[in-house]
Amino acid sequence: MHPSKQGWGFFAAVVMIAFIVLANPGSAASNKLVITGSSTVAPLVGEIARRFESRNPGVRIDVQTGGSSRGIYDVRNGVADIGMVSRALKPDETDLQAFTLAMDGISMILHASNPVEALNQQQVVDIYSGRVSNWKSVGGRNARITVVNKAEGRSTLTLFLDYFSLKNSEIKPHIVIGDNPQGIKTIAGNANAIGYVSIGAAEFEINYGVPVKLLPLDRVDASVDTVRRGIFPLSRPLNLISRPAPQGLAKEFIDFARSTQVHDLIEAQYYVPVSIH
């Protein structure tokens, strides 16, 4: 046999095997729940869903992201059983019912050695847009400010921009970071840096002796406690939504997600659990 012919035979065989493996249809479970919505909430709900599945054999939960608005749209249209929304429901959304899983708060952080004790809104805006570039101008020592910003698409960035009415293209960053731990390490390594992270994440690291500090915002202390009480301004609820009076599997899942059985999962994502059960 000519080697190249053999080669083609092989190629065909391998392609066919690949197709068979890839096209294997997922076994259709009868007990299925579809959850869509916010990409902030999705990782947490994904973890909760995995635990729920392992405790209820035979149940299959499909978690898809696509933004809070998709969650609302899908629940209204019956495409999804439950939606994920990383904000409070708006007045025109009374046809839906929200179940808060957790609170998420973010705050400005500085290096622990930075003498600045508080910044007001205008000062933060000035620093991030590059109009103020030295700590001296806001009551600190004479040193250049290193502005730490989040990568585009991160929910923390969106919340930060909304609160300070900034556009991301107006911000003049010196360092762009991905997740919270990287942001905290960056600031811990730079005495003149300013950044913003999830409060839960920052408190966790501070307890382990990392030299950063949280700044109060609008004279409210930044702590997991003020976030839990709902008085910290830069915070938001992470909600599951459904049409009123969820039943059956959807109700079971919502109850499970708000029970103390998932607190460790919520805290692992640096959110603040708020369940009453």
């Binding site: 990409s39 902030t40 992201t65 696509g66 933004g67 990568a151 585009e152 698409g153 991160r154 929910s155 960053p173 010196h174 360092i175 762009v176 970071i177 991905g178």
Partner: peptide, 30 residues
């Protein structure tokens, strides 16, 4: 590397690489 999207003028300027760009933004991109 700092990950700021800009053409570096000096060795001390932060830069972002293509690979870092994907890793930074992929998790939340739609």
């Amino acid at each position: 590397a700092g990950n700021v999207v800009q053409h570096a003028d000096s060795l001390f300027d932060p830069i972002r690489t293509l690979a870092a760009n994907i890793a930074l933004e992929m998790a939340y991109a739609m």
